[in-house]
């Protein structure tokens, strides 16, 4: 049985697992902290976006990999 198609979406899906968990963890922890100390919300939101941006960067690198012209084997 032959399966024809692209591997890139599959690889992207695998890459997204990690950054998905990471982003969820960052945001969840932020919500938890805000629930404990609501007066720090502004500062925590700033830090949260920074953490989300760093974590998400991995999945954008994964997208970019599909466009790198690797030499054919």
């Amino acid at each position: 049985m032959n399966i024809v198609g692209q591997l890139a979406p599959l690889a992207f899906g695998l890459a997204v697992i990690g950054s998905g968990i990471g982003v969820g963890y960052v945001i969840g922890k932020t919500i938890e902290s805000v629930a404990r100390q609501p007066e720090l919300q502004g500062r925590l939101t700033t830090l949260m976006f920074l953490g989300v941006a760093l974590t998400e960067a991995l999945c954008f690198i994964a997208i970019a990999v599909a466009f790198i012209p690797f030499p054919a084997p």
């Binding site: 941006a53 954008f60 970019a64």
Partner: peptide, 13 residues
């Protein structure tokens, strides 16, 4: 490097 590249890629993608 990563900061500007991810800014652009996040929005576009």
């Amino acid at each position: 490097i990563v900061r500007p590249v991810t800014l652009a890629l996040r929005l576009t993608m």
